[in-house]
Computed example of a mutant assay.
Amino acid sequence: MIFSAKKSEDSTIVELLALSLRRDIAFGTLLPDQKLKLNELRTRYGGSNHSMRETLRILTSEGLVEATAQRGFRVTSATEDDLRDIALVRVEVEKIALSRAIELGDVAWEGRVMAAHHALQKAEAALRDAPDDLTALEWDEACRAFALALLEACDSPRLLDTHAKFFDQSRRFRLALMREGKLDWAARKARQKALLDAILSKDKARAIELLQADIEAELKPK
């Protein structure tokens, strides 16, 4: 029992550390290609050497961090080629998952999609009216929740895991556009409403077309 409790405590610490580093990579606090030194990370985020190494191992498996031979860890690059590749994978994976979700989803799923859409619209309005770190973080989480809600009825944990991995890799590109004032809020709102309507009407072809357009609007190199 003692060993079990310790393992649970360590797991919780690692989860919290991973959450903090994911956020700071997404928001550009930790920059692309930046070296990640254990002592500096522990000073900044806390945790032990073991918990920080485990955190970096998890983020490496998610594609947010790279392990370099004999050189430790660094934040993954964020080039136009990276952007193109992430967009390609997200489009293909999410098209399959959304198609299955529309086929398999029930009324309860539709209700969760509607709720997530409503929450996203409120978060976007709050960010436009009062842009700061808090509203940006809430908006980022609402984007994630809406993207997941669209796909969660696909009945494939592996599709959802792959979606989560590449969605996290795409976050910093979308957040960079937001910080630079390059997001077309009106166009986003129209696409998301049209996507919701297509899902509720079971128009699979239209929903997939709109989903692809929504991903590519933020992840195609400009």
Rank of each mutant, 00 (worst) to 15 (best):
A69P: 06
A207K: 07
T135M: 01
V65C: 12
K165Q: 14
G181H: 03
M178F: 12
T55V: 10
L177D: 04
A108S: 09
A78T: 02
Q121L: 03
E9Q: 15
K204Q: 04
W109L: 00
G111H: 06
L64C: 07
V113P: 04
L120N: 05
R174L: 02
T43G: 10
K220Q: 04
L219F: 07
D10H: 10
F173S: 00
C143W: 11
K165N: 08
L150C: 11
Q169W: 10
S99Y: 04
R74Y: 09
A18T: 13
K122L: 13
Q34S: 01
A69C: 07
G47M: 11
E218R: 09
F73Q: 06
A123K: 06
D197Q: 05
A190V: 07
K122N: 10
L137M: 06
N39W: 13
E54C: 14
E66G: 12
A5R: 13
D140C: 13
A101M: 08
Q70I: 09
E15A: 15
A67E: 15
L210V: 01
K95A: 09
E152L: 01
L150R: 11
S170V: 11
A187L: 09
I215L: 10
W139S: 14
D85E: 13
R112D: 02
V75S: 06
D33F: 04
C143G: 09
T55D: 06
A217P: 07
R179E: 03
R171D: 01
D82L: 02
D184Y: 03
M52S: 11
K220E: 01
L211M: 04
A147K: 08
A147N: 10
D132E: 06
D184P: 02
D214I: 04
R158I: 07
G47K: 08
T68H: 09
E62Y: 14
A123S: 08
A164D: 15
A123R: 05
G28T: 01
I86V: 15
R22Q: 14
E110Q: 11
H50Q: 14
D168P: 05
A142L: 05
F27T: 06
M114E: 13
L200K: 05
K95P: 02
A147S: 15
A69V: 09
G72S: 09
K122M: 10
K189G: 08
K6A: 03
A78P: 05
Q34F: 04
D82P: 01
I86Q: 11
A149I: 06
D81Q: 12
A18E: 06
Q34H: 01
D161Y: 07
E124S: 13
W139I: 00
E152A: 01
A176C: 01
W185L: 00
I58F: 10
G181S: 00
R90F: 07
R57I: 13
Q212S: 15
E80G: 03
D85V: 14
V75L: 02
M52D: 13
E218P: 05
T60A: 15
R179S: 05
A115C: 06
L219R: 10
